[in-house]
């Protein structure tokens, strides 16, 4: 029990910043991203006995974070349906909930947010977090082919969103 707790805190020290950044890109609210990360590590503690070391601990933690985040996004989507009835603002972003990013990073961040969730996920995993195709497929629970095709379709879409914002990539890979 104490040993398990020690493992979780060690992993927290090593990966929490990176996981929080992934969740933040997905949910656009830093307080929410901290809460979801809390869920991620608590769930990891409870399920630690199922971690057999077949993947790296980082990949395993990211797959839990992915599940926790997708669960939250689904719930939020349902909530937004009801918000729509009462004609509330479609975007939940408020100055209190978002980081003040550097201008050039903010454009990429906002352009990413215009993509579909699956496209955003695959670009975040492959390009921002630098996971391999195999690792990305393990984290997202997709086939490697799906990772490749979704990324292949997502990058030009992101490029066009960036162009709309007056920003051009020198090369999109």
């Amino acid at each position: 029990m104490l040993e398990d707790y020690q493992i979780i805190t060690d992993w927290y020290e090593k990966y929490s910043d990176s996981i929080q950044s992934f969740i933040y890109i997905m949910v656009h609210d830093f307080q929410q991203s901290e809460d979801l990360m809390q869920d991620t590590f608590f769930r990891a503690y409870r399920k630690l006995d199922t971690f057999k070391g077949e993947s790296t601990e980082k990949t395993w933690l990211f797959s839990i974070a992915h599940n926790v985040t997708i669960d939250f996004l689904r719930k939020r989507k349902t909530l937004q349906l009801f918000k729509g009835v009462f004609r509330e603002t479609p975007s939940g972003d408020t100055p209190e909930s978002v980081y003040m990013l550097k201008e050039e990073n903010n454009e990429l961040f906002l352009a990413l947010n215009e993509l579909k969730d699956q496209q955003k996920l695959v670009i975040t995993m492959r390009k921002i977090k630098g996971f391999s195709i195999k690792e990305t497929s393990e984290i997202l629970g997709w086939s490697e082919t799906k990772v490749k095709t979704t990324l292949h379709r997502a990058l030009p879409v992101l490029e066009s969103k960036m162009k709309n914002r007056g920003i051009f990539y020198e090369k999109v890979t």
Partner: peptide, 29 residues
């Protein structure tokens, strides 16, 4: 404005840098 694809990493580092030590500790608690 022209940008290089390395900006993907910049965005990640930018977000991680903005996460305060207090948030880090609070979540761990």
């Amino acid at each position: 404005m022209k940008r290089s694809p390395d900006k993907y990493k910049d965005l990640d580092e930018n977000i991680m840098a903005l996460r305060g030590e207090s948030s880090r500790r609070l979540t761990l608690d």
